[in-house]
């Protein structure tokens, strides 16, 4: 059951009006940003430190994946807005987001497969190392986002009050991951 119902006056009683789920997500976004900033700085330093940096031709599928992920950002936003009026249509858009997210992961897996068939493994060169590290870690975060959506979908079945904060939080996280992916793609593409 909604735990909100246990304490009807909680919201009005507290001086802070935001929900912990939403604050929590923003805090998580800050931490993840910091981690990827650390990876990016490492990439820059590593590039300068050796003469073994060979640029990597990115598999074309990555661009398709980008489009899919950005589309899923739109669908989750639609779900969030629909949710205010219609639970059913919100669930529909969430399922669509889930599917797009899964498609993105499949696409990423295909990209890794392509690189391997070209003989580019994790330890082959610093570029391939960074490619795998950054894309795999991003994919893990995407996986976390998918779990969050499954959770939200399951919650929409029961607690109606509650879902609003949860879907807002999940949507913020998802938009962030889309933005992060575009950033990573640019970093990996650029011939620094």
């Amino acid at each position: 059951m909604s735990s909100m119902a246990l304490q009807p006056d909680r919201g009005s009683q507290s001086p802070a009006q935001t929900s912990p789920a939403l604050s929590g997500v923003w805090v998580a976004v800050a931490a993840i940003t910091m981690s990827f900033a650390a990876f990016t700085s490492s990439l820059i330093i590593r590039q300068a430190s050796g003469n073994d940096w060979r640029h990597l031709a990115l598999p074309g599928i990555l661009y398709l994946n980008t489009v899919i992920l950005l589309a899923s950002s739109l669908t989750v936003e639609t779900a969030r807005r629909k949710g205010i009026s219609s639970l059913a249509s919100m669930r529909f858009w969430l399922h669509l987001t889930l599917t797009l997210g899964a498609a993105f992961l499949a696409g990423q897996a295909f990209a890794w497969h392509r690189l391997r068939t070209e003989g580019l493994y994790l330890a082959t060169s610093p570029n391939s190392s960074f490619f795998y590290v950054l894309t795999v870690l991003h994919a893990l975060h995407i996986l976390g986002g998918l779990c969050a959506f499954i959770y939200v979908i399951r919650r929409t079945a029961s607690a109606s009050l509650w879902r609003v904060a949860a879907i807002d939080a999940a949507a913020v996280y998802w938009h962030f991951l889309a933005g992060l992916w575009v950033y990573l793609l640019l970093v990996l593409r650029t011939r620094l």
Binding site: V27, M34, S35, F39, S49, G50, D52, P126, S129, V133
Partner: peptide, 29 residues
């Protein structure tokens, strides 16, 4: 702590990869 441990974690990941996966993040030629 949030920002500091968010940097040590990537560092540990890279260190582990250098050690077990044969990458060269920290080991010179």
């Amino acid at each position: 702590g949030l920002l500091a441990f968010a940097v040590l974690l990537p560092a540990c990941v890279l260190l582990i990869l250098d050690r077990v996966a044969g990458t060269s993040f920290f080991i010179p030629a």
